[in-house]
Design a protein around this nucleic acid. Structure first.
Lengths: 355, 355
DNA sequence: AGGCATTCTGTTTACGTAAACATTCTCCCC
DNA sequence: GGGGAGAATGTTTACGTAAACAGAATGCCT
């Protein structure tokens, strides 16, 4: 209703609205604007009484520092850019949370861009978009295939990447994909499965590639046959479709899915076909999303310490911002432990005919 | 190794590093800085030949506009703040995606803050934090109990909220919680269940309250008994614990959980106890997260059109930024349809003893 | 050909802040 | 109580950009 109070904007000249400035506060408090600045930033000491007077004036005027001006003067924004890939839906959303939390602790805010596909062009576009934004550093989660060269960044922009493909080009932090995958496959072999099948992630994904390779190598090392992997795309829906195939095959007793969503879809299909998990087919996922423990049966999976990764990514940025540290070759690895739940068991002696 | 190329920073005076400026480009191109500005913004026409010359100079120098200066001059940041509450882990993460996408389409970036608890103080703190950030508008997702008064915002800051509690105070966009909840409960009643139990969300949550109230009202309208609701906290873990209780009770044949995670935990507990879903107990969730269709059994649930909500939130902000529209009373409602899958069925005539 | 509208370009100025330097004040010591 | 060190405060200036205004070039019409 009453709206007469609004519209307090400064109509002067062609300049846009703006709140009270440092000068307004100075005038009211009877000090110089520099003193107001000192109170505002706390950079230099101000006599207690003066400070009080300034703070009062600030409150009275509802003063808030103009961050554009401050950023212009200081040359930084206290903000970092974050590029993610649909990632918000997967377990990696925790990485985002951790990045935001850690950045905030450092007094930085986070500007988020979500690219639809992890393809080179999309990420480049996002980089383009973001590097034109007001950021002091850039974190890229799952850049997948983008080649380092494709990232046309200002050379002074600190970068941290959670994708092993960038090792040697940009500082990277990532889970121990290989170790986790090997542990998963070995776990199934140890249970007595003769062979372990794999539902892979999309072929253009770095992590998917690492997991598939580690799976293959573990089988080879154990002297086992390496079956053709199933090609997935991370989605539960695809896991379900592949599951329908697998459910038809008596010879598949153990499956290592490249992520939990696909594992869930797989189990869904197996249930529907009347195949039992883990009695008929053992399933292992990857990520340990929150729901993994409450799927049926609770999913054995490889945990990614997303929180740790996010935290470390911010640390890498901060180190670049702080000292003039050269971290190009840096590569932090976070352990990826196998979490054994109830979706894996020793294979049955011999299955009777299906159903 | 070779690092002599780095450190191209301007060492002059006490001023921080910075790339080439509009003036440097102007000098190289042999035009005035204003012309460079015109090319950069495209605000006014520039002769094709001149523009080319300027663009060349820009490329040559690797010029990128200084956004702090631009923001200072223009009085806006082309950025909006987004406050979320652990929301990244739930279905509402899709809202975030949609907000980011829609904002980007408008040329805005998104600054994200994730508060740990939805409590008044935390949200206020986040608002405080963000309103001191470089943003032109603010979107709050699930502010839960924060009272409008608690949001000490600059009066000119456009706000959009996805929480019905703010209706009348701030423009709001939200799913039709009541309609969706009623449909869920009615569905169970229609199947023949005598009474429907409820696993509620946390008591300080607005949406949880709406769902609980709608559940109760639907039962009352049908002339049914209203049992004591179970108190949850959105987590699958709690759903599981409550499920262990419910599994002991023969009288519970239908449960409406306030979200999908709790429904998943509930089903987990029921499975473990040997109770069958939906044969012994029917379960309905809320949200329709991606995995809902691939839980076992696939979960009947109320879909929240998060994408739509996110999109609408941005639209509300843009309308405030554009015209001087007064939207305080605005409240957009997005339908929340019931998605029937396989976790619900008519009750068995009479259950034998447990197990 | 002259005049005027149109298009293009240049000059001046201000946005709000904080570093650098300059000045004033305070208080302590001999 | 005079001198001086240090603390407190003030003055000047520049950060990079774009709006406002001013001036120059071009073209078009009669």
């Amino acid at each position: 209703m009453s709206s007469e109070v609004r519209g307090e904007r400064r109509g002067v000249k062609g300049h846009p609205k703006s709140g009270p400035s440092i000068g307004d506060v100075a005038r009211l408090a009877g000090v110089s604007s520099q003193t107001v600045s000192r109170v505002s930033t706390g950079s230099e000491p101000v006599k207690a009484e003066t400070r009080e007077r300034v703070l009062d004036a600030m409150r009275q005027l509802g003063y808030a520092p103009n961050l554009a001006a401050r950023a212009l003067r200081r040359g930084n924004f206290r903000s970092i850019g974050l590029i993610a890939h649909q990632v918000i839906r997967t377990g990696e959303s925790k990485t985002i949370e951790a990045v935001i939390e850690a950045a905030r602790r450092e007094g930085y805010s986070v500007s988020l861009v979500d690219v639809e596909s992890p393809s080179s062009s999309d990420v480049s576009e996002a980089v383009q978009h973001l590097s034109h934004q007001a950021i002091d550093g850039l974190i890229i989660i799952r850049a997948e295939t983008a080649t380092p060269a494709a990232l046309a960044l200002p050379p002074t922009m600190p970068v941290a990447v959670s994708d092993s493909r960038f090792i040697g080009h940009h500082p990277a932090v990532g889970a121990d994909q290989v170790g986790g995958s090997r542990a998963a496959v070995q776990h199934l072999l140890d249970l007595g499965h003769g062979v372990v099948h794999h539902i892979a992630g999309p072929s253009d994904s770095g992590p998917a590639d690492l997991r598939a390779t580690a799976w293959k190598q573990t089988l080879v090392d154990a002297g086992r046959e390496v079956p053709e992997p199933f090609g997935g795309d991370w989605s539960a829906e695809t896991g379900y479709k592949i599951g329908n195939e697998i459910a038809q095959r008596d010879d598949v007793t153990a499956v290592f899915a490249a992520n939990d969503e696909m594992a869930a879809g797989l189990m869904h299909a197996l249930h529907e076909a009347g195949r039992r998990v883990p009695d008929d087919v053992s399933v292992v996922g990857f990520d340990d999303i929150d729901l993994a423990a409450h799927l049926w049966p609770p999913l054995t999976t490889v945990r990614q310490e997303f929180h740790q990764i996010g935290h470390d990514l911010v640390e890498v940025i901060m180190r670049q911002l702080g000292g003039r540290e050269q971290l190009t070759g840096y590569h932090g690895t976070v352990p990826a432990p196998l979490i054994v739940r109830q979706s894996t068991a020793a294979p049955r002696k011999r299955r009777r005919t299906r159903r």
